[in-house]
């Protein structure tokens, strides 16, 4: 199976500081790939390279098996890559439909086509089995943290995207809401999307992820199937870059 998204040998430096060393990363359709790593391991930088916010210094960027150049967020969006950042980027003073279509409103000539937007938003939420909002004409300011996360995710899915990257979607949520969002993450993958989940929380990772990619000091320590590793092995990969046979050999950056 060709991965939807494949990166090979990515290097990225900011001035004299090299943040990513020869990183390889793959994400498959229908799977949740967890991207883990300690603070400063390069998770955010990697995601921003994928999203076209930072240009990569060298390496190959393949989308559906074909090499592509992603130089701006717009390029990424055109390929079908959507990133849901931690701060969600929702407008509190707009309702759910308005937020989902923000910047890409449908119109009839000059006038906004509210009805078709509302219909499509409703359909998208229904396809994600979202049942927790009272009305999709509700202002986002009246939503709970989990509901906001849901809206942000639904917004990313609305555009027939193929890859959805979620940056710590459960970091600020309570137990029940975390469970809801994780369920939604699983459903995205089951609907055929490639989902990349950035998380610090091992419970979340093992609850939904099919694969786990662990970054250690800017190098990809290992990318493995979640079923093949244990909780403590992943923690070792995150903290020391290696775990038994897995991981970096003498810091050489060669991945398993």
């Amino acid at each position: 199976m060709t991965p939807v998204l494949e990166l090979r040998g990515i290097d990225k430096s900011f001035g004299p500081v090299q943040v990513l060393h020869d990183v390889a990363f793959t994400a498959y359709a229908g799977e949740v790939t967890a991207l883990v790593g300690d603070n400063g391991a390069g998770k955010s930088t990697l995601v921003k390279c994928v999203g076209g916010i930072y240009p990569i210094d060298s390496g190959d960027y393949l989308f559906e098996g074909k090499p592509v150049h992603v130089n701006s967020p717009r390029d990424a969006a055109e390929l079908g890559i959507e990133i849901v950042y931690q701060d969600l980027a929702l407008c509190d003073n707009l309702d759910i439909v308005q937020n989902m279509f923000l910047g890409r409103e449908r119109r009839n000539g000059l006038v906004l086509d509210e009805d078709s937007m509302e219909e499509l938003a409703q359909k998208t939420l229904a396809s994600l089995s979202v049942k927790t909002v009272k009305s999709i004409r509700q202002l986002v300011s009246s939503l709970s943290g989990g509901q906001r996360q849901t809206v942000a995710i639904a917004k990313a899915v609305l555009w027939n995207s193929k890859v959805v990257i979620l940056d710590e979607p459960t970091a600020a949520l309570g137990v029940a809401q975390t469970a809801q969002v994780l369920e939604l993450v699983r459903r995205l993958a089951d609907n055929g999307l490639a989902v990349v989940l950035i998380s610090h929380n091992m419970n979340d990772v093992f609850a939904v992820a099919d694969r786990i990619a662990a970054l250690y000091l800017g190098r990809m320590a290992a990318q493995v199937k979640a079923a093949d590793v244990t909780h403590s092995q992943v923690v070792e990969l995150i903290t020391s870059g290696r775990s038994g046979e897995l991981g970096l050999k003498n810091g050489s950056g060669v991945t398993q």
Partner: peptide, 24 residues
Amino acid sequence: RRTAFGRHIYAVGGNAEAARRAGI
């Protein structure tokens, strides 16, 4: 109320960063 321009005014007033990321 009825044009994309008006919607974008509300969006910028509500969260300029979100509006910027939405390509406005």
